[in-house]
């Protein structure tokens, strides 16, 4: 019963991540989408983990995910800082060789 509930939640998270990933093109949200994907992955992994290895997975998720979240927030902050610099032109412009 618990496995079923976990697979359901994992699948939901995966779907949300993929939808978010495909819909928006800006960095921060894309990062967030990938974060959801990884979270979904971890939840699904919980279904297969033998009991003695559970602690390793928990430790990994406990450390990894918050740090990734922090990175996503930093991406958000940098993006807003970028707009403040009133560089309204397409962010990818001027990347080329000629400037």
């Amino acid at each position: 019963m618990l496995e079923l509930m976990f697979t359901l939640v994992g699948g939901l998270l995966l779907m949300a991540g993929i939808w978010l990933f495909l819909s928006r093109r800006d960095f921060a949200l894309r990062a967030l989408a990938f974060l959801l994907l990884t979270l979904g992955g971890f939840v699904l992994l919980l279904v297969f983990v033998p009991s003695d290895h559970l602690s390793g997975l928990i430790l990994l998720a406990a450390l990894g995910l918050p740090v990734s979240l922090a990175l996503a927030v930093l991406a958000r902050f940098l993006q807003r800082r970028l707009w403040q610099l009133s560089d309204e032109v397409d962010p990818d412009a001027g990347e080329g060789r000629h400037d």
Partner: peptide
């Protein structure tokens, strides 16, 4: 150059 920029935009 265009190919490079396209790859850059779609790197994810």
């Amino acid at each position: 150059e265009r190919l490079e920029r396209a790859m850059r935009r779609q790197s994810a």
